[in-house]
Design a protein around this nucleic acid. Sequence first.
DNA 1: CTGAATTATTTAACTTGTTAATCATACGGC
DNA 2: GCCGTATGATTAACAAGTTAAATAATTCAG
Lengths: 150, 150
Amino acid sequence: MSRVPLRDFSHSLPMALLRAREAVMSRFRPMLRAHGVTEQQWRVLRALEDSGEIEISRLAERSFILMPSLSRILQNLEGRGLITRRAAAADQRRVLVAISPKGLELVGEVAPHSEANYAAIAEAAGEDNIARLYGLLDQVTEALEPPPED
Amino acid sequence: MSRVPLRDFSHSLPMALLRAREAVMSRFRPMLRAHGVTEQQWRVLRALEDSGEIEISRLAERSFILMPSLSRILQNLEGRGLITRRAAAADQRRVLVAISPKGLELVGEVAPHSEANYAAIAEAAGEDNIARLYGLLDQVTEALEPPPED
DNA sequence: CTGAATTATTTAACTTGTTAATCATACGGC
DNA sequence: GCCGTATGATTAACAAGTTAAATAATTCAG
C-alpha cells in the first residue's frame, strides 16, 4: 500500500548511460588490451599527447580520472617508460608529466586501430545519431554539473 | 608528418558518456552513502525488489554487473542480512537470490530520496531532454551491441 | 621570521571492473 | 553407470573508483 512506486528498474538514467558506454567500450577494450594498455592508461596517454607537459591536477580534469587513480596509473606508466615526471621549478609541490618518445610510439601504433573503431561505431550507430547524442550529453551534463550546493 | 590526426581528445564518446554518468551519479552517491550502500549494492537491491527471487546470472544481466563483481556484492549483502540465497531444487548449480525483509526496509527508506533526486535531475536538465536522451541512448546501444562477430 | 592555514600529491582502505582460472554440478554418448 | 564436456558460480589477480587521511611544499598573518 504505502510502497513508494519506484521508477521502472530498467529505465534509470545511470543504467542507460552505463549500458551505452559499455556498448562502445566493448569495441575498444580488446584492441587496447592487445597493445598492453587499459582504457584509463590510454586516456592518459592521449591526453598527454594532446596537451604536452602538464600538471597532474590538470591532467586529472582532462582525462576525467580522480587524483588517487591517476596517481597509481602514472606510477605504472612511468615504470614502463611511457611518461616522464618532474617537479615544477617554481613550486615544488606541483608535478609536471609528459609523454615520452616510447609513449608516443605506442600511441602511434594504437591510434589507427582506435580511429578504425570510431569509424565502425559511427557507421553502425549512424553519424547523425552520434552527433545528436553528443549534443544531448553535453547539454544534460552542463545542466547537472556542478551538483547543487548542498 | 605521418602522425595520425587523432580525434580531438575532449570529443570522445566514451568520455562524454562517462561525464554525463558522473554528473548524474554525483547527485546520488552522497545519499546512498548516508544509507550505507554503494551504487552497485543499490542497483542489486532495486533489481531484486523488482524481480523477486531470481537466478544470479539473470540478476547480473538486469543489474548490469559482471558475475565476479556480483558474487562479491552478494556476499556483502548476505552478510548484512539484506538478501537470502538458496540452491535451486532442480539444478544444484543454480543459486536463487531474494531480497530479505531487512533489505526491503532499507529500500523503503532510500527510495523517497532516490525519487527526489530523479525529480531534481529532470527539472535541472529538462524532462524533454532526458526523454530524448533515453531514446538516443537506447538506439545507439542497440545498434552497437552485440559487438561485431570477431 | 616563525608557525598556522593552504595547496598539490600521494597513501590507505575498501569496493568494483576485468580477464582468466577453478570448482561443482549437470548432461550426453557409449 | 562411466567419462568427457558443458554450464553456473566462485575465486584469483591486477587495475581502477571512491572517500578519507597523510605527506610535503608553499603562503601568509603576526
